[in-house]
Design a protein around this nucleic acid. Structure first.
Lengths: 124, 124
DNA sequence: GTCTATGCAAACGTTTTGCAGTGGG
DNA sequence: CCCACTGCAAAACGTTTGCATAGAC
């Protein structure tokens, strides 16, 4: 059913070449270097199917919108520096499980986003 | 400078009457019960100014978009039940400060979102 | 009377969709 | 040869903006 296309390859490669979360428009731009005709509708459709296939994860940035990153990297959180506007990955999980839910509630997933100033911006 | 209008009052009242986070379209709908002519552009403009005034806080729901809630209620997180699709407030903060940042990073703010099943949905 | 806030409609950016045609299996 | 996937253009969606005017002060 699933067909291998040069478009899908180009999109995957975009994530393998950059090791940071990418926006849709970045994927489109990077992908076009490989496949000139690459269309944004194709990017959207492939990102969706790659998420469903478990190859990508969606990051919902509260201010900058949707990013995608390789699922492989395991659970972690994100930090947005409002000085340099870059997105950082915070390894591990700083959540206390016990205090994460009301009694009887089942927590299946969570997303954490930090905002502030990164080390290089803070030192100047 | 700031003028008191029946539209702004109606919008504030919407939040005082419901004690849960509201979407823009909900605010519009509730507000129209008081001011029939209430326009969505007016809602957007007032929500923005109420956030700037510190009366409202913005909640970025990763899947359902933007919600607003009264700022008064203090720091807490949110839980979305995918069974009944309701939004719950989780009092307190389950984050371990020390593990929240990389060395040298200054965390000013964070947002946490939990997904799962609420107690009433889990028991049926 | 002044000038801010409103209502309306158009514009905007992002994402989705219908459809005809390409190309992977 | 078939049908999933693509490209294109239009549509859909949530939000913002320009402008004339109502209404707060």
């Amino acid at each position: 059913m699933e067909r291998k296309t040069i478009q899908k390859d180009a999109i995957k490669e975009a994530f393998l070449s950059k090791s940071r979360p990418l926006r849709v428009d970045e994927v489109l731009l990077i992908g076009r270097k490989k496949v000139r005709s690459l269309n944004q509708a194709t990017v959207y459709r492939n990102l969706k199917s790659l998420v469903e296939a478990g190859w990508l994860k969606t990051i919902h940035h509260p201010e900058l919108g949707v990013f995608y990153e390789r699922a492989e990297q395991g659970h972690h959180h994100h930090f947005h520096c409002h000085a340099c506007n870059r997105l950082f990955e915070i390894p591990g999980c700083a959540l206390r499980k016990k205090e994460s839910a009301l009694p009887g509630f089942v927590v299946e997933r969570h997303e954490v986003f930090f905002f502030g100033v990164c080390s290089s911006c803070a030192h100047t």
